[in-house]
Design a protein around this nucleic acid. Structure first.
Length: 371
DNA sequence: AACTCGGGGGG
DNA sequence: CCCCCAGAGTT
């Protein structure tokens, strides 16, 4: 893009953002919309920006909003979050996915309270030192909450830039990422950087969409190399992705006197630190015919089959999981130490469960209203 | 540089 | 069914 066009790009984009931005719970009114903004600059609540950016990683705005509202209601300040149990934090994150984000955010809050006097750091370097905060999130907080001149590159910005500059190389490759980061830094103005960064993302979300971009109403139409060449629908390009792997998870609902066994998953891997009913995981080809011996060896409980078996599938980015739900009753034995807790199905409010485990609980309740 | 980590929106 | 989403951390 010719150098003289950069001021035009910035001016048009910020003007468009002033008219068309969405009102979001964590977003302050753009400075251009505020009279006398020079004497009275409204800034975002840095804690709210931190929470929202953690939730927004790989997650659409509309999905995040109700989670954000509940989260800041429960934890109004970074001190409240730091003082909370991880269990509570995961419970508020339940259903949002990528649960490691919740644990990182919780850990970051504790670092902020312990080492930053309870203030979200206002420099990029300090932000990058916090768990769960990478180049994008650090730049977003620095620019949006503190007006620091830090670039951002997310899926929206990458798409907008790839079209603006007609970048043909796949945008998910490291070399292309480097070039896009450079461009993101070059287009960034000196002032109103927070609004500008948000405007780039907002344009990608509302106008410069992945399919069928609304070029006719785009404020940058006459500056966009892809649009001028009629190639906007072909860009950006991405590398091919691997097909999800097929696996089978058998949930064993172990019942004893009206209560069911629940356990916490390990701190790493899928659904880390979330809770579940005992679940046997295997390749899809591996038929789970030795389920009761597995229960006896793992939990010390001798069980007998009870009730019908249910089936459902669960799709994640990297796996297609065929779930089976089997209900068994304890006939003999004693639960091995630290192997789980017994809970009634209507008393699970404090246990963070993954979506498929929640679905399994719902199916159990439907099958057996009350003993 | 490739993998892993969820779940939902929308074509 | 597919691709995509206000990415980060690990290997």
């Amino acid at each position: 893009m010719p150098d003289p066009s950069l001021p035009q790009l910035r001016r048009r984009l910020l003007a468009w953002y002033g008219r068309h931005h969405r009102q979001l719970p964590w977003r302050p009114t753009p400075q251009s919309q505020i009279p006398n903004s020079k004497s009275e600059i409204r800034t975002a609540n840095p804690y709210h920006v931190l929470v929202s950016e953690a939730m927004l990683q790989q997650t659409q705005v509309a999905t995040v909003i109700p989670y954000f509202d509940r989260f800041v209601e429960q934890f109004p300040t970074v001190h409240d979050l730091a003082a909370a149990d991880e269990q509570q934090v995961l419970r508020l994150w339940q259903g949002l996915g990528y649960y490691r984000r919740a644990r990182h955010l919780h850990a970051a809050a504790r670092v902020i309270v312990d080492h930053h006097a309870g203030r979200v750091p206002d420099t990029l370097d300090e932000l990058l030192a916090l768990p769960g905060i990478g180049r994008y999130t650090g730049g977003a907080i620095a620019s949006i909450a503190f007006g620091r001149r830090a670039p951002i590159l997310d899926g929206n910005v990458a798409r907008v830039l790839a079209r603006l500059f007609a970048i043909d190389e796949p945008t998910d490759q490291p070399a292309t990422r480097d070039r896009l980061w450079q461009l993101a830094e070059q287009v960034l103005p000196r002032k109103a950087v927070g609004d500008f960064n948000q405007a780039m993302m907002e344009l990608g979300a509302l106008v410069c969409t992945p399919r069928q971009p609304a070029c006719l109403v785009c404020p940058l139409q006459t500056l966009c190399l892809a649009q001028l060449a009629g190639r906007q629908a072909e860009l950006p390009r991405r590398s091919i992705r691997h097909a999800p792997k097929a696996v089978r998870h058998v949930i064993v609902a172990i019942e004893r006197r009206g209560k069911y066994l629940f356990e916490q998953r390990p701190a790493t891997g899928l659904w880390s630190n979330m809770w579940q009913m005992p679940t046997h995981e295997s390749p899809d080809s591996d038929a789970p015919d030795s389920l009761l011996p597995w229960v006896r060896e793992t939990y010390g409980l001798t069980c007998q089959s009870a009730g019908d078996q249910h089936e459902f599938t669960h799709q994640t980015t990297h796996r297609t999981i065929a779930f089976s739900l089997v209900r068994v009753q304890v006939a003999a034995g004693r639960l091995l130490p630290n192997r789980g807790v017994w809970r009634k199905l209507d008393a699970l409010d404090d246990l963070p469960l993954s979506n498929p485990q929640r679905k399994a609980v719902t199916m159990l309740v439907g099958e057996k209203p009350t003993a």
